[in-house]
Design a protein around this nucleic acid. Structure first.
Lengths: 156, 156
DNA sequence: TGAAGTCAAGAATAATATTCTGTCATTTGT
DNA sequence: ACAAATGACAGAATATTATTCTTGACTTCA
């Protein structure tokens, strides 16, 4: 299903999507048509979900990252989650173990904007009981890449 | 510096990088050469950082997300951060306000693998004082996209 | 063994990327 | 104000890449 060459292709694309197919084919040692066929298949199988551009947050006034715990009324937690997901500054919404609580990742211009967002858009959501914010002082690593195995383990 | 057409191009690429340039040019109403010139310029200016493929974590046995707070010896915190960043399962390493603490995002196969990772790779790092783990039960939203205005407001 | 399926090469063709030139509009300097 | 400089773009010419299609090797399974 997914062999060493498939992984190699994905590794190349994870580093640099928007690379010409023919260049991929040179790197993996297959004909361009074969690479195309493989990529199409992986897209169809849902192995590849899509391609994204990586923008520099600082250039868009989005340098401030924060993580916020949001405690919710358990009866309304689904609805709260959906509403949180609609806020564009919120990049991630996770429901976490522990105490009827979402953990969300926010990108805002600065702490002032973050405060406003919390006060006006988040605490005002029906079902939100309380929030607890951690601001990020420095980011050492930030990737969405998935570590790929060097070889394929058996799946059936 | 960045006008409405530039934003439009970025919006298109954020939804679907690996789209042909000529298709972008059709959508924004410019010649392909002009779009190419603009994209190159944005890459050079550091507005565009790169292009990534988005993989489906479930297909790679990386469905379990967890966030872990890692309290460190303040004198060694930089070194701890660098070491954490080297662990492939750790996608994000943020130094957060509050208490000499990193917040890391982990992708692992399951809670068992997570436990092993914590026990063998993280708590063993010199300078790590304690950890506190939250596992994700459900993810409502997960994107690295930066919210862009649809257009630049302009007085005409 | 033979039919069906998979995978990839290679050629032919379609589409796209890239370069280059000229134009127009705006800006800059004097 | 005016000429030179700059920046953005269109359009054509060319280079490169994508895509399709056919064929053949190899595998699997009954």
């Amino acid at each position: 299903m997914l062999d060493a060459i498939g992984l190699e292709i994905l590794n190349i694309l994870q580093k640099k999507a928007r690379i010409p197919n023919i260049e991929v084919s040179r790197q993996v040692g297959l004909a361009p048509s074969a690479v195309l066929e493989r990529i199409r298949k992986m897209e169809k199988q849902g192995i590849i979900d899509g391609y994204e551009v990586r923008l520099n947050p600082e250039q868009f006034n989005r340098a401030q990252v924060a993580f916020v715990h949001i405690k919710t009324n358990p009866a309304m937690s689904d609805k709260v989650g959906s509403e949180l997901a609609l806020i564009p500054e919120i990049q991630e919404v996770h429901f976490v173990s522990g105490s009827d609580c979402y953990l969300v990742k926010i990108r805002s211009a600065d702490t002032t904007a973050l405060g406003l967002l919390l006060q006006e858009k988040i605490t005002t959501i029906d079902g939100v009981l309380s929030t607890s914010t951690e601001t990020v002082l420095a980011t050492v690593k930030e990737t969405s890449q998935i570590p790929l195995p060097l070889t394929i383990s058996q799946t059936t």
